[in-house]
Amino acid sequence: MKRLISALYATLFLCLSGTSVCFAKAETVSGTGFYFDTVITIKLTAENADELLQGCMDLCQHLEDTFSAQKEGAELYQLNHRQSEKVEVSDELASCIDRALEFSQMSGGAFDLTILPLRQIWDFEGKQGLTALEYYGEEAKEKSLVPTESEIQDALSRVDYSRVHLDGNTVSFDRKDTMIDLGGIAKGWISSALKEYLKEEGCESACINLGGNVTTVGLKENGKNWTIGIQTPFSLRGEILTAVKAEPDHCIISSGTYERYFEEDGVLYHHILDPRSGYPAEVGLSQVSMVGMDDAACDALATIGLVLGREDFEKMMEENGREEEVLFTDEDLAFSWFNDGGEHERQ
């Protein structure tokens, strides 16, 4: 009889604890925000989903205030408007500059973190979809949206990654007019940071989209791989070129000539500038997409691919033992994979 009572109590205990498990059920939430001049969407599954989503948004705000070269109060803005040649920076900024230097060196300047003066004279953000008259106003007259040769040469003389040095958290510059732009790598660095934050907080399933840079944590809530579409370049309705089943914690990051550009006299000038020539890179590609686990690397590599072109880029990847998968999309939208071990169907 005593055993019966114990058994009954045990059953009751199990019933109650089973009910309390319902309280802690994982929830899926998604949120959208505007940071880094783009739209970000985060979808995640966790017991404290709302709290983690807010944590991600707060982290985005903090990192925008760190990595922006345009926002006056931002740490990078202040670094570019420095008073001395040596500046102590935060851990985040030091880490991102470190990665940017790594890829500037690896690519021999096809990616260059000191590209800001060149970006400023081209101003693709401001010129998108406008004519010279609309951009400059009445004073435009004969003016072109394309910077003059002397403006480009002047800006180019200020672009050289070898003038930036990082020692711990100290950034030093050889010249006063050197300015850093992390636009080609910061979003990748940030998506890595979000991924790390979520994993540390115990989240096992998330999909993060930072203005087209997609990264994932684990698998979907139903245990399947996240399925990520890759956009067709220049399609207005966001048509899909192909889709990738992401391995856990992998990212899919593209760089494309279609993202920002302006047209003048029938020529398309896009925002992927070759820091060596000062002009938009012309290699016959409209998009390079990277699939890998190192988001910051994928972000920088996608841009490098568009600047170097297929052949030189494949060579650089091999020489540096990079294992990321690459999807090249030609200007005529034909696409092919590199480094994928034949896993994806070839066209």
Partner: peptide, 22 residues
């Protein structure tokens, strides 16, 4: 129910896409 996602972005060859890179 919560947790059952209907946040369908797009379909590609019959497959539901969770997000779009570009």
């Amino acid at each position: 129910t919560a947790g059952e996602s209907t946040d369908i972005t797009e379909l590609f060859e019959g497959e539901v896409l969770d997000s779009i890179a570009g």
